[in-house]
């Protein structure tokens, strides 16, 4: 089957496998190589924006420690997928129990999106970490280190991942494109960087999608971005401001059901749209709307109903739209 041209997602295909392959985050790589050299490591906390190489570094570290068969020594968990701390605890217990013979006396547990855990769950996690310290090392991954409780922060070695530099991202995209025999304009690669805000995974996803359309041009990149941002978002705002409530609500439902967006996703998409150049609304209105979007997002995070809160948002837009016209 390997001879068949199976296509992988490039974000995975071109993920650096070893610490040596990582071209960015030099300081971090240097410290991680020390762990490999000493064949020991503390619990770690990798923090930084999405797409800056946190998971990649964790996997590469494991690879360099255990060799290419590293997978059996590593447990990958995602805090936002695993249902609750109890599930995490039992999975960890199961994993930690079996001892795998080898030169390294511990196994690695990578817990991604750890900052999505509640403070209570983190407290329980901390106890679990202490319980299995003799056989396991934790690598916690988070976007926002401030959302990790103090006791965990003080028990982990802290690694701050910084946004990738433009030349590094563009060079990587160029390298991938060359490997894949994809034709491209240099300008397009730069546009991808601008639109992905230093997030390498996003940049590579855009590149791959754009390459599916043919030559990677600036136009193709914008087409991909446009298609990835549903037009319903803008249509919803326009309908709401024009006072067409039910039409706006239908767009909202299409976004949530057809695109699978959560209430918070919709709020974020609206926020992006409000400040985009294409939507022509008075500047001061943008601030008023943003203020309310923040309120709605907070309520949703507290567990409010997305249909009710977003309907209230549409009603508010309709009211603002009417006041604007009169």
């Amino acid at each position: 089957m390997a001879s068949v041209e199976v296509e992988l997602l490039w974000a995975e295909k071109y993920r650096p496998k070893t610490l040596d392959e990582i071209v960015n985050q030099e300081e971090i790589v240097r410290r991680l190589k020390q762990f490999v050299k000493s064949r020991n490591m503390p619990h770690c906390l990798f923090a930084g924006p999405p797409g800056t190489g946190k998971t990649t570094a964790a996997l590469a570290l494991a690879h360099d420690l255990y060799g290419s068969g590293y997978a059996r020594y590593v447990l990958e968990l995602n805090a936002s997928d695993a249902r609750g701390i109890d599930v995490i605890r039992t999975t960890v217990k199961e994993f930690a129990r079996s001892v795998v013979p080898g030169p390294i006396p511990f196994k690695i547990i990578i817990l991604d999106e750890a900052d999505n855990m509640t403070a209570d769950a983190q407290q329980a996690l901390r106890r679990t970490m202490e319980l299995f310290t003799s056989t396991c090392r934790f690598i916690l991954i988070a976007n926002y280190p401030s959302k990790i409780i103090e006791p965990i922060q003080s028990r982990t070695a802290f690694f701050r991942f910084t946004p990738l530099k433009k030349e590094d991202v563009v060079a990587r995209l160029k390298w991938i494109a060359d490997q894949e025999n994809v034709k491209y304009d240099m300008e397009a690669l730069e546009t991808i960087f601008e639109l992905s805000e230093g997030d390498m995974r996003r940049a590579i996803n855009i590149l791959q999608a754009a390459s599916a359309l043919g030559r990677v041009t600036v136009e193709a990149v914008y087409k991909v971005i446009g298609a990835a941002h549903p037009t319903e978002v803008r249509e919803m705002i326009k309908a709401a401001l024009a006072g067409r409530f039910t039409e706006a609500r239908e767009k909202l439902r299409a976004l949530m059901i057809n695109y699978g967006l959560s209430g918070v996703d919709v709020v974020k998409a609206l926020h992006r749209e409000i400040f985009s150049a294409e939507l022509k609304i008075p500047e001061e209105l943008k601030v008023i709307i943003a203020d309310y979007l923040g309120e709605v997002q907070y309520r949703l995070a507290e567990g409010a109903d997305d249909e009710i809160q977003l309907s209230a948002l549409i009603a508010r837009l309709a009211m603002l739209g009417k006041r604007l016209r009169v």
Partner: peptide, 12 residues
């Protein structure tokens, strides 16, 4: 629109 907004705000 004003009535509708007030009502939805109360419901929210």
């Amino acid at each position: 629109p004003e009535d509708l907004w007030r009502a939805y705000e109360a419901l929210a």
